[in-house]
Nucleic acid binder design. Structure first.
Lengths: 237, 237
DNA sequence: TCCACACTCCCCCAAAATAGCGAGGTGGCC
DNA sequence: GGCCACCTCGCTATTTTGGGGGAGTGTGGA
């Protein structure tokens, strides 16, 4: 990895504010000599954050027109797993063609590579490099830099997660072994009677476990408790 | 990146069968001179696949004892986002201590680095490198190789996703927007009446959504449906 | 154009979960 | 020895879900 890129990664690793993320994207843009670098991120509460080199006009326009629901990059990456070249996306519909044209008019590149990453609680981030150039030039750019970009995207996410954790704080309640078993059977779709039979205890006892878990998790009902236990990674189905 | 590692990555990229994945893990083990390389993967239907260099005895033991629910690596990575050194995990409980001891006895290393990756439909994969060595040796190994391992993990996932798409023909159930909203409210602990009020529809209509979601997800009851929707990343609470 | 599918509403009744009141035994920790 | 967390079991009454029927609208794709 290039020394100046290492330096940029360090700046991401030590980023504290959104401005720091912003500065990092500008540094990366200059390093790679591309039109834009953008990092876009949805935390577990569904709040969106963004840092990047797009013009303010484009960002405003994007928000105003609710292009999140149109942008094939967003729609495409939401169903994908791995780095996506914009060319692979579906630009065939009328709305997406119009969107692309307008994006280019606002200075967004005609080429792009977007790397989606997901977190355990529904966090979803997109790291994008975009440029205006021919297909051949872009392909060779990707060949040279795709791996580094994946690593950079990881660094952004790592820091973004810490940023999120800094904002939130919640106590994780521990469930007892029997409570965990009971919750697991319930999460698998068993009725209380079935789960009790599985655990070889009375249905009443099972109920006590479920209620204990519900209270510990601050849940309103069994379904809520299961949802919370799954979200917190306490149980696996 | 080392030429011989490039070769191993190519072999991952062209993997077709589980045996190919297996062979790739063995190659990586030899390349890095570590005790084990393991790739473990849960697809969007909750089916588990694995390829790695652990002994068959350990794998059997692991399955038999249902260690998925004990293993701090699994439990820890489920709540995390980024490469996890096994030392960072919680080994303080009695069961996890016993598990660790047994794992070491079966030849699993005392050190490990696990890289979790998630897909859009709740796919969840773990790529692990493990070795028996001192903390210092392991730290320097991580420093040298962590980035490469992240890229290797990405390659495994990319191929695993293609493998999944090739093997499965059963449609991944997509829930309609209203079904997703309904499921989300239910997952947040609301009763049908409350959720219906939130969505400003009759309780009966809400019930239709919940039942449709239940059928699409192949769930036995509402709680099960919520659990599946969460596991597959369809909803977030 | 028509079909499929999402969306909306209504009935009834059996089954299951929830809420409230209990009881007692074990084992670890201060 | 006392406290606390965990594990186990019982009862009754009320609320919520689940399964079985229906029926009508609107919208987007073949």
């Amino acid at each position: 990895m290039h020394p100046s890129l290492e330096k940029l990664i360090s700046s991401v690793q030590s980023a504290v504010t959104l401005e720091d993320f912003q500065t990092a994207t500008e540094g990366l843009r200059d390093h790679y000599k591309v039109a834009h670098i953008v990092y876009h991120w949805v935390n577990s509460n569904g709040e969106r954050f963004g840092a990047g080199t797009y013009s303010q006009e484009w960002v405003d326009r994007y928000v105003e027109k609710d292009y999140l629901r149109v942008d094939p990059v967003i729609l495409g990456c939401f169903q994908r797993f791995h780095p996506v070249d914009w060319k692979q996306l579906d630009w065939s519909t009328k709305t997406s063609k119009a969107f692309f044209k307008e994006a280019v008019r606002y200075g967004v590149g005609n080429q792009g590579l977007t790397i989606p990453i997901r977190g355990p609680q529904g966090q979803f981030a997109l790291f994008t490099a975009s440029n205006t150039c021919s297909d051949d030039v872009w392909t060779s750019f990707r060949k040279r830099n795709e791996r580094d970009l994946i690593l950079v995207a990881h660094e952004f996410n790592k820091r973004a997660l810490e940023y999120e954790l800094g904002v939130e704080s919640d106590t994780v309640a521990g469930l007892s072994p029997r409570e965990l078993s009971a919750m697991t059977y319930i999460a698998k779709g068993m009725s209380r009677a079935q789960a009790a039979a599985q655990m070889d205890i009375s249905e009443h006892t099972l109920r006590v476990y479920i209620e204990a878990a519900r209270h510990k998790l601050g849940a309103l009902n069994t379904t809520h408790a299961v949802a919370r236990a799954l979200s917190r990674g306490l149980i696996v189905i």
